[in-house]
């Protein structure tokens, strides 16, 4: 306790300086002034009102915050907004292109969710995973989707949905 109090005594209280960044989000250029302590996840949810990306742990443990950065899936809670200068980011809001993405349609068709809270992360993760091209079968899909927790337990339907899209030839 005492060490804690001493440590706190010297802690700075002034806010960290903001930095300008330019990020392309869902095809739109955004010029932002962000402080270095703002995660990409919080910037999306709190500053840009892109609340489709979910916060399930804020510690990289659940995958709910998965977005695509330059086409690769990452946990947006584990990266800072200031690090995204010049990047292209796709969130769940940008997955549909006029009509829903086949992965979104498959999720509805196979009822691959219940509460829907892990769903944007699952969908972004599934699209990112198929683009990586490492999953050749159901077992590998399950393994490579294991960074996305679904407390409702929709796993088997999620795999059905992904296999359907995969076998639809979109990613061969």
């Amino acid at each position: 306790m005492d060490e804690n109090i001493t440590a706190v005594k010297d802690a700075p209280v002034a806010e960290p300086k903001s930095h300008p960044v330019t990020i392309n989000i869902n095809g739109q250029q955004h010029q932002l002034l962000v402080q270095p302590w703002v995660t990409l996840l919080d910037a999306l949810r709190e500053k840009l009102d892109l609340t489709g990306t979910k916060k399930g742990c804020d510690h990289g443990q659940c995958g709910a915050c998965t977005v695509l950065v330059n086409g690769k899936r990452i946990n947006s809670c584990l990266t800072l907004a200031v690090m995204q200068n010049g990047k292209e980011i796709t969130t769940i809001e940008g997955i549909a292109n006029g009509e829903m993405h086949p992965m979104q349609q498959a999720f509805i068709k196979y009822d691959a969710f219940q509460c829907g809270y892990c769903t944007p992360g699952q969908i972004c993760s599934a699209i990112g995973m198929l683009q990586e091209g490492h999953a050749t079968n159901r077992e590998e899909v399950k393994e490579l989707m294991s960074g996305n927790i679904c407390r409702c337990g929709a796993y088997s339907n999620i795999v059905e949905a992904i296999m359907d899209v995969k076998e639809g030839g979109q990613y061969e």
């Binding site: 489709g52 769940i92 809001e93 979104q104 999720f107 509805i108 969710f113 829907g116 944007p120 969908i123």
Partner: peptide, 12 residues
Amino acid sequence: SRVDGEAKVTGS
């Protein structure tokens, strides 16, 4: 299919 499905898969 869930009537709230579209809202959930599009993030709205």
